[in-house]
């Protein structure tokens, strides 16, 4: 029965080709350090799932942000878990991204023919940092408010265009309701869209070119 269904589907959408191309392809034997990339991907999925769940109750206005976060944490069943996963997932994502990158650097995996994969990876790092920066403000507690005040002020101390950058980031001179709304917008729309696009490129290239083999020592001539 199941075979019939899968065959029926394969005839129409050709999933078997995709399955074979992605999952049954042969790749060099690699060690456990090579799981860092997929672990990072897992944290990204974790952030997406828990993030979507959080938006169900979160309200991005100064009046309600703090109360709604508190409501999620204390009133909603499992709310503490969802928020906890998102909070710690963010840190884990940064850690794993950096570790993954160190692995790539130390084993020379950014070299020919994987330069473009590397570029997309660096962009992904910037997106992850952006997530951390914008997400920090959203709970609207003391830490969030003052951390973001200082963060935006640091960005604003750049020469010439600093003040302008600051105003763009805050949506005005002060850290206000406008800032919260735009940080939220960037955090749930702009950055996820960029993340998905960059991840798609990154993954496509990884599958297309194949994961790099563990390099051996150069034979001394």
């Amino acid at each position: 029965m199941i075979t019939r269904v899968t065959n029926w589907l394969d005839e129409r959408i050709g999933w078997r080709n995709v399955w074979e191309a992605i999952f049954l392809r042969k790749i060099p034997k690699v060690n456990w350090f090579y799981t860092l990339g997929s672990a990072t991907l897992f944290t990204a999925i974790n952030q997406a799932v828990t993030g979507i769940l959080l938006t169900i109750y979160y309200a991005p206005t100064p009046d309600h942000a703090y109360d709604s976060v508190q409501y999620i944490t204390t009133q909603i069943p499992m709310g503490w878990l969802i928020r906890g996963l998102h909070h710690w997932g963010a840190s884990a994502m940064v850690v794993l991204t950096v570790l993954h990158m160190l692995r790539v650097i130390l084993l020379g995996a950014y070299k020919y023919p994987r330069e473009v994969t590397w570029f997309s990876g660096v962009f992904l790092l910037l997106v992850v940092v952006g997530f951390g920066f914008t997400g920090y403000l959203l709970p609207w507690d003391q830490k969030a408010y003052w951390g973001s005040t200082v963060g935006t002020r640091i960005a604003g101390s750049a020469p010439l265009i600093g003040d302008w950058i600051l105003r763009v980031m805050r949506g005005g001179a002060e850290l206000s309701a406008v800032t919260l709304a735009r940080f939220f917008g960037v955090h749930v729309w702009v950055l996820p869209a960029s993340l998905i696009l960059l991840l798609a490129i990154h993954m496509y290239l990884v599958i297309k070119i194949g994961i790099s083999a563990t390099p051996g020592r150069e034979e001394k001539a």
């Binding site: 976060v69 928020r83 906890g84 709970p139 507690d141």
Partner: peptide, 19 residues
């Protein structure tokens, strides 16, 4: 690991923002 962190430490929430 994340579940453990969420369970044992939880996501901190300080006082409401006080500009």
């Amino acid at each position: 690991g994340l579940v453990a962190l969420a369970y044992f430490i939880g996501a901190p929430l300080e006082e409401r923002a006080n500009p």
